Amino acid sequence: MAKPRIAVFALGGTIAMVKGEAGVRPGLTAEQLVAAAPGIDALARIEARTVSTIGSSDLSVDNVLEVARAIEAAVADGADGAIVTQGTDTMEESAFLLDLALRVDVPVVVTGAMRNPLSISHDGPGNVYAAMQVVTDPAVRREARSLGVMVVMLDTIHAAVDVAKMNSSRIDAFASPEAGPLGVIVEDRVRLTGRPVRDHKTALDAELGDTLLTGIEPPLPTVALLTMGLGESGGLVAAMLADPESFGYAGVVLGAMGGGHTPSWIAPQMDDLVARLPVVMAGRMQAGYVLAKTYERAGSEMDLLRRGVRSAGRLPPLKARMLLTAMLMGGLDQAAMDRVWAAAN
């Protein structure tokens, strides 16, 4: 039987670092990353392409959609799967955005490295090889549409909707804190142990209809992320209300405290903010659902919902921001957005 044909797209990041003057900088190509994983050619026919060589903190929504379009083109040309290598700083966001944008029936995996190639025990080659094991696995290929985009790090398979970077530098930085991983790789076997809940994706696709996010041209809307903390004054919200044109945001995600809370003195500002643009609250922690009917004090989830702030449900702020961005890109009205948010709750 012919080996599957897999497209590999490289975006730079720690996995692609080379020696610089004082530290390291991105520089390795997709071909070099593939060549560094011994035995990978036995798994697939590989077509490697370098999209960029930058740190993932410099990636934009446009960049991620460019990769999504490249994946669509590769699949239309007969590719059986795709791997994206990138930096880990924004991996959970870019993987989730790819999951929102793509409608393909082949597996797509995002991977990278926590240690650069000049480090002892560099994890990049092993992660690339593990990603290839996943995209070529028969069970994964059969269930690709339901699994959605995956992140593979340290022989662990995560759903894009659930994965989070939980540590700034440890090799085991990635986890799925709310739902747990989709599976693991043991020896030469991919063992799936779970399935992702992606009702928000189903709802988004239904509301978008024939509109594809990959077909939307720049300029794209941007969404502000305002994380609430002890003693937050609300000065940024006040500034946005006083001079909205200077800020230029099309929506706001509140990284809310607890089950969906802000300081009580900020809550009245939400009335004016909601009147101008979509405002969504998401728990600033990496796991847990936003509440809906427990606390009723000023600034609580019940108060914010009453004022028109929408709930991101199970999505943390970084992913709620990507979902709101996708809905704004698609031109959804508030009623359509509410149906998508309901699916995440």
Rank of each mutant, 00 (worst) to 15 (best):
K201P: 08
V128Y: 04
V280S: 02
A139P: 03
A36K: 00
A79K: 04
S233K: 07
L100P: 12
T85A: 08
A326F: 09
L65T: 14
R25E: 08
G81S: 13
P181S: 11
E31M: 14
L304V: 08
G229N: 13
V135K: 02
M270R: 02
V163R: 01
G235F: 06
A113D: 00
R314H: 07
E296N: 14
P219Q: 01
I83R: 01
R339K: 13
L324Q: 03
V149M: 02
L33T: 00
L102G: 04
L154A: 05
V279N: 03
V274I: 01
P218A: 11
R115T: 14
V51H: 13
N345R: 09
E217Q: 14
D210Q: 05
A74Y: 10
M240S: 08
A320F: 06
P26V: 06
M153N: 04
A30K: 05
L304K: 13
A130T: 02
L315H: 03
R198S: 08
K293P: 11
L328N: 10
P4N: 11
S233N: 11
V109W: 03
V161N: 05
V134H: 02
G13E: 01
I266C: 04
H261R: 13
R321D: 01
G183F: 10
R115W: 14
K201Q: 12
V309N: 03
I83A: 00
L315S: 00
E21K: 14
E31K: 09
W341V: 07
L98A: 03
A239V: 02
V223S: 11
K165E: 00
G81A: 09
A287R: 10
V61M: 09
V190A: 10
R115N: 10
G215C: 11
G194N: 14
E301Q: 15
D155P: 01
D137P: 12
V151I: 07
P268W: 03
A175H: 12
E93N: 15
P219D: 00
E66A: 06
V104H: 03
P107C: 13
G283P: 00
L318Y: 09
D137S: 04
V110T: 04
A282Q: 07
A131F: 01
L220M: 05
V274Q: 02
G231P: 14
